[in-house]
């Protein structure tokens, strides 16, 4: 029955998307990795987790010096305190997650069959709060970002393992919508994410070089020097959308969560190494 429903859904969904769009997540990922391997043959696969520092050696030297005194260290410490703090009912954030804390980060984003939506780590933390009588935090609230920074730090060295289960048609749909978002041109500048981070990866845009999309999600949240604080992946998405002069979607909107789902799947197999530090 479940298989029949899934088959029916896929037939219906395939009618909604252009021919050739449904290639399968793993097939997409293999092609994605192969593209960058061909484009930058000297860069080892695991290096892509370092974002632009895999490509730009000058920026990498500066980054390594910054890492001597990591600017995100205080965020990680505050995040740990929040993770361990008791809710009014005596429970803690850790009680909401079945995994060991070092494995929490790499399990997200994931597709939740019950709600039919992609659940990111940020959403899962807020769900935990509301389930324990606390109000949800705004998605740019520093407390929330600090908790994700702590969990990212704990997960360092663990490989991303995002799943798009074959038996969950909703998961494939969310993945495909994220993929479509990634490749769709938008805004007054008529740019897709892929225009900068695939076709032009490594090229200069003004004084900065564009990072490769492979590895984009491994190191978030990141401390941004120009903002003087740690920011979320969705804040970075919002900045990119604004840069091409399109109206950004809300942080943790369905659009951005689907995009995170797609991009995270593309980076499967890379080691989590957040929080990162960027200009």
């Amino acid at each position: 029955m479940k298989i029949a429903a899934a088959a029916l859904f896929l037939i219906g969904f395939s009618l909604l998307v252009p021919q050739g769009a449904l290639a399968g997540a793993e097939e997409d990922r293999v092609a994605f990795v192969a593209y960058f391997k061909s484009r930058f043959p000297d860069i080892p696969f695991q290096e892509y987790a370092n974002g632009i520092y895999a490509i730009d050696s000058d920026a990498r030297d500066q980054w390594l010096e910054i890492e001597d005194f990591p600017p995100y260290e205080f965020a990680v410490e505050r995040g740990q305190e929040a993770w361990l703090a008791s809710f009014p009912n005596g429970r803690t954030l850790a009680d909401c997650f079945s995994q060991q804390q070092e494995n929490v980060r790499i399990m997200y984003p994931r597709f939740d069959e019950l709600s039919g939506e992609v659940i990111t780590l940020d959403v899962a933390i807020n769900n935990c709060r509301t389930a324990n009588t606390l109000p949800a935090l705004a998605y740019d609230d520093s407390e929330l970002i600090d908790i994700t920074a702590f969990l990212a730090f704990e997960a360092r060295g663990k490989k991303l393992a995002v799943r798009v289960p074959d038996d969950q048609p909703g998961a494939l749909q969310a993945y495909e919508l994220g993929k479509r978002f990634y490749y769709t041109k938008r805004g007054q500048l008529n740019f897709a994410c892929a225009d900068c981070h695939i076709a032009s990866a490594g090229q200069y845009v003004r004084a900065d070089r564009l990072s490769a999309s492979l590895g984009h999600t491994t190191h978030f949240p990141v401390y941004r020097s120009k903002r003087g604080k740690v920011i979320s992946l969705h804040k970075r998405f919002s900045g990119c959308v604004r840069d091409v002069r399109a109206k950004p979607f809300a942080l943790q909107s369905t659009e951005f969560r689907n995009l995170e789902y797609f991009l995270s799947y593309m980076s499967n197999g890379l080691e989590a190494n957040g929080p990162g530090a960027r200009k």
Partner: peptide, 12 residues
């Protein structure tokens, strides 16, 4: 336009 055009940019 993008409703169809995005597919042509997918890395294969």
């Amino acid at each position: 336009y993008e409703a169809d055009a995005w597919v042509n940019r997918v890395v294969r």
